Structures are given as structure tokens and as C-alpha cells.
Computed example of a mutant assay.
Amino acid sequence: MSKTLLITGGASGIGAATARLAATRGYQVAINYRSRDAQAKKVVADIIAKGGKAMALPADMAREADIVRMFQETEKALGPVTHLVNSAGFSQRTRVDEYDAALLEKFFAVNVIGLMLCCREAARRMSTKHGGKGGAIVNVSSMASTIGGRIGSSAYAATKGAVDSFTKGFAREVAPEGIRVNSLRPGMVMSEMTEGRLKDAAFRTSIEASIPMRRVGEVHEMAGAILYLLSDEASFITGAMLDAAGGGYII
């Protein structure tokens, strides 16, 4: 059976690294993006140049209609979705006393509700209850969920805590129906989301001093962990949280 992997937020960072690695392991890859059109098409071109099969498709994770269309277009072009990685996310540092409702709604619309709707669409296709043949899902969470995030990241951490809790519950629901669902919790990783701050030498030094391995992670390391959780090597693992964070935090 062909393996079709849909990756949300696949144009950059962990999502793009996962797309490239998955293609080398025989997956057909659908790369979702919201605004990074050129980057998404570059990832697709790189995969095709190496003999793989990939496509890019825009969709906003805050819009239910976009999510439904994304699954439909993936199926039309590549066949049934057998694997899903929810990597799309929104992050903005803000103190609690600076919150406004619109910002919080955006956090949860993208990081939680959009992810849950993607899982809904995947379950409707993968579950043996609905005539599917099973599948595997990885939700990209964060180590922020374990301690409430670094200072200024409490809203982001709250969404990732929701992702972890949902992952556990969803995994139990669909385990008898052939679907495995796990969460990857990266620590600080060098990516488009973090590179601006990590270019500050003092900030990077302080961050690395807080990590037991004394360094930030790389996107290829996260991709490897995701591909393991998607693979048959992890066939008895579901409802798990895998911390990929260099040992977590030194507090």
C-alpha cells in the first residue's frame, strides 16, 4: 500500500525537514502552507528532483473549510491519506497582562482547533470504523506544555498542553480502529520561528545553559523522531509524548 503523508506547516522548519526525510523513505508527501508559497514549492521541487512525489497546497488552519479542502485535494492527487503530521503552529511572546481576546483566539484557532479538525478529517479516512485501513498521526507539541513555557509564552504553552491532552484522549478512542496517535515535544530548535532570537549571542547562551545537553536542537533531529513515530517500528506506541529536547530544562 502506498504511503501518503500530509504535513501541515510543511513549508519550513520541522515540517519541511520532515517532508524531505519522509520522501526518502517512500512517502508521497502533501505539504500544506498558509503564506510561504515559494518555500513550499521549493520543498516540493527538491523532493521531485530526487525522484519522489510531492505537492504543495495552501490552507489556513484557522479555517475549517480550508482544512476539509486540503484533505480532499490531497486524496485527489495522491490517494488516501495514510499518515498525518500536524506541524503548523502560531507563536507570539506576550505577558498575561497584555493579552487580548483576539490574540488568544488566534492561538487556539491554529494550535488547537485546527489541529483537532485535521485529526477529525484523518480519522474519517483512516479508521476501520469508516472503511479505512488505519494510519498514524503525529501532533507536534512542545516542551512548553510541561512547565508553562519560558517567560512570556504562557498562552503558547497552554495550547500545547491542550494538544498533549487531546492526543492522549484521541489515541484511546481510535486505537481499536487501526490508528496510532502520538505527540512530539521539541525543546528549543533552530528554525525559522526561533532563528531571529537565537542570533542574539547572549540569549542563545542563556538558552543553551538551561538545556542539559547544552545546545539547541536541529530540525533534522525532530524529523527523525517524527518519522520513527509514523513508522511500523513504533507499531505498539500510541498516546505517547516523546520529548526531543536535549534533556528538558535545568531549573
Rank of each mutant, 00 (worst) to 15 (best):
P186G: 06
E195L: 11
K199F: 01
A245F: 00
L229S: 02
M188T: 15
L229T: 03
G246H: 06
L198K: 03
G248L: 04
L242Y: 03
G196L: 09
I237T: 14
R214W: 10
V219N: 02
G246A: 05
R185C: 12
A202E: 15
I211W: 09
S231K: 10
K199L: 08
E221T: 10
S191C: 09
M222C: 14
E195M: 14
G248R: 05
P212V: 14
Y249C: 01
S191L: 06
I211T: 11
A201K: 15
M213W: 14
T238A: 06
E192M: 07
V181A: 05
Y228D: 00
E208C: 06
M213D: 13
I211A: 05
I207P: 00
M188W: 10
V216N: 04
L198N: 06
G224M: 04
G239H: 07
Y249V: 14
S235R: 15
E233T: 08
I250S: 04
A240T: 14
P212Y: 11
M188H: 06
M241D: 09
G224N: 08
V189T: 15
I179Y: 06
A244K: 02
M193Y: 09
A202Y: 06
T238I: 04
S231M: 08
I250C: 09
A245D: 14
S235K: 14
D232I: 11
G247T: 09
E233C: 04
G187A: 12
Y249N: 12
G247F: 06
V181R: 01
L227E: 01
G187M: 10
R180P: 06
I226K: 01
R197A: 15
L227D: 00
L227N: 01
G246K: 04
I207Y: 02
E218K: 15
E208R: 05
P186T: 09
V216M: 12
G239L: 06
A240C: 07
M190F: 13
G224S: 07
R197M: 14
H220W: 13
E208G: 05
G247A: 09
I250N: 06
A234S: 14
I179S: 05
M193N: 07
G217W: 07
E195F: 08
A244S: 11
M188C: 12
R215D: 06
A225R: 01
I211E: 05
S183L: 02
S210E: 14
V181D: 00
M241E: 13
E208Q: 12
I226T: 02
M213H: 14
